[in-house]
Design a protein around this nucleic acid. Structure first.
Length: 294
DNA sequence: ACTTATCGGGCAAAATCACA
DNA sequence: TGTGATTTTGCCCGATAAGT
């Protein structure tokens, strides 16, 4: 797939990008964008027709169902008029943290992000990936775009925050489009492994049994899982166990020992040790922290 | 602390893809 | 259709983490 070399932008988050303006219009035949350079992102999405736009000498023709993300600090202009009525959406936003370009295939989807804990006061560095130019799932995007355009028309205190939320949603959808684009063989295997581990997370982990059900070699299956989640099978199973343990601690009155055995630990001590190692606090302390909060 | 099983890297064969 | 590049898949093994 030529998509592998597709250029993407990596935005460091937080902070999240901030919406400036959003619009929707239909360009008549002969319409052509003027030349300008401004310091913010300009996201163009074409619903119908074709738009011709050049950014820093690089010409693009954005057809129906395609998008182009104009970057801050570059200049752009329409290099040819529309030959048919062209319906577009544009979204201007700014981003006040680091921005880098990266090839699609170099995006490290697999690197595991650290989950925040009770002890964190600042968020870890995370990233948002956006396509520079290409096909998008317009069906998924349209409801968000229309809602944004509508709210922008009737901006009031009530929906100011919602607009920013919708921008985040829009960008997340664009990223999701990138994600699903990646060659899916290993992704499918990964999903299978996840599903099997999920289905019996409380039983002892057995690589052989996993392999037997998977009709794939364990090493290969493990590698697929790691490629997409960053975790080994055992780690992933423990991740599920700990999520379930956390849930039980928050929402039930079961004792720590009972929860330990419910999520598959024969020894309560071992459960506590493992919980502490992965979550950062002991199960009792975790429960204490959440008591009355939910 | 001690025994095992898992992890993860390296290697290569097989399969698939890209492109002329 | 051939050919070379890339991806998928299986196998092996030393280091290391799991579990008691």
């Amino acid at each position: 797939m030529a998509d592998d070399n597709m250029i993407c932008l990596q935005l460091t988050i937080p902070p999240m990008p901030v919406l400036l303006t959003v619009g929707h219009s239909v360009w008549p035949v002969g319409g052509q964008h003027f030349r300008r350079s401004f310091p913010v992102f300009d996201l163009l999405l074409v619903k119908q027709g074709v738009m011709h736009m050049t950014e820093d000498e690089q010409p693009y023709s954005i057809g129906a169902g395609e998008m182009l993300l104009l970057e801050p600090g570059r200049s752009h202009h329409g290099h040819a008029p529309c030959t048919e009525p062209t319906e577009i959406y544009w979204v201007h936003f700014r981003h006040d943290a680091r921005i880098e370009t990266i090839e699609h295939r170099r995006i490290p989807w697999s690197s595991m992000l650290r989950q925040g804990t009770d002890y964190d006061h600042t968020p870890d560095e995370q990233f948002l990936y956006l396509p520079k130019f290409g096909q998008v799932d317009m069906q998924a995007l349209l409801p968000v775009l229309d809602e944004m355009a509508r709210l922008h028309q009737s901006l009031c205190h009530e929906n100011a925050a919602m607009l920013h939320t919708l921008l985040a949603r829009l960008l997340a959808l664009l990223q999701a489009g990138l994600r699903s684009r990646q060659s899916s063989r290993s992704f499918a295997v990964c999903e299978q492994v996840k599903q099997i581990l999920q289905s019996r997370f409380a039983e002892p982990f057995q690589a052989e049994r996993l392999a037997a059900e998977l009709h794939f070699d364990v090493d290969y299956a493990a590698r697929c899982l790691r490629k997409h989640t960053g975790m080994s099978p055992l780690k992933y199973q423990y991740f599920i166990r700990m999520e379930e343990a956390k849930r039980l601690l928050r929402h039930t009155l079961l004792s720590v020992q009972e929860i330990g055995s419910a999520v598959g630990f024969a020894s309560g001590n071992y459960f506590i040790r493992t919980f502490r190692k992965t979550v950062g606090v002991t199960p009792g302390a975790y429960r204490e922290k959440y008591r009355g909060l939910m």
